[in-house]
Design a protein around this nucleic acid. Structure first.
Lengths: 156, 156
DNA sequence: AACAATTAAATTGTGCACAACTGAAATAAA
DNA sequence: TTTATTTCAGTTGTGCACAATTTAATTGTT
């Protein structure tokens, strides 16, 4: 329980139960993320990708080749998540997982031709998803910036 | 690829690649949600709860008794997620899962004394998590409202 | 009353997310 | 140069999240 002052004309003192769903930031954050990823699902299914797989592919379309650590740092995911995910992308024929000759610990993740080709098909995804989110662009930009800020300011 | 007009003095035309991580809302949303839930983990571990279990418990602390459908509607989760989660809460001794006598299809989820008692222990969680998020309260409020708005305006 | 349609929850199977741990290779320290 | 430490991926095990399906109970129709 916490006591806060309301911003009304006559400043009342009200008791806010912070253990209620309505008063928490994390619940809408978590629900909204789930909802948007749920909206991505049918679009990405046409590319035979899940949302986290799509994230990896976007990084590879941009950088051609990355190791597991670099992927993990950019996506905030660890090897426990990435290794099986990358194996699935490999078995679908979208990426290769070579060992680095300089440092045998490192895996170099690169696109196959098929993975490269998927880039074309994916071009429409952003606009398709944008159509399903009926919200002003400036609000979405604001939401993006607040999420990025939160990400920087939470110690986890 | 999309062409947008920047808001600069001399309105340049720039090409924005919407297939880049930096230009998407969902990625920071997804990462921020994961990060905050990660921050909750050690706090909730002391109560022997996961974050989704904590959500269910909060609803029960507020309403005493709910069926699976009502829980699902409020949390945006289906029986495929809730049924095993509720079984875990039951086996920990926090809830009961009675069948409704009026309608045998329905499960009535209610708190045990132990589950009720957990409410006291949980009182500190919101302030503890607040300390780990070094961000102004007005920005968090704004983030909450934008997430709630997004949740309403995405068809999924 | 008999049958069809609907509803509530459970089940099955896939794919994350992550903590904790392991093994192997590279780097640092003695 | 041996040994200690660190680093990179991989493994194991738990718990979601969800699509698709199933079972059983209820409601609606004829």
């Amino acid at each position: 329980m916490a006591v806060t002052h309301s911003g009304d004309e006559n400043s009342r003192v009200e008791t806010v139960d912070r253990l209620q769903l309505d008063n928490q930031v994390c619940f809408p954050l978590y629900s909204a993320a789930n909802a948007v990823i749920r909206a991505y699902r049918p679009l990405l299914a046409q590319l035979d990708l899940t949302y986290p797989q799509y994230l990896v592919m976007m990084l590879l379309w941009q950088h051609q080749q990355l190791n597991v650590k670099a992927l993990g740092q950019q996506l905030h995911l660890d090897s426990g998540t990435l290794t099986p995910l990358l194996k699935r992308l490999e078995s679908k024929g979208f990426i290769t997982r070579r060992r680095c000759s300089d440092d045998e610990r490192v895996r170099l993740i690169a696109l196959t031709e098929q993975g490269q080709a998927l880039h074309q098909q994916a071009q429409q995804v952003p606009e398709q998803i944008r159509c399903q989110v009926k919200m002003p662009t400036d609000q979405l930009l604001q939401l993006k910036q607040l999420c990025q800020s939160l990400l920087q300011h939470v110690d986890s």
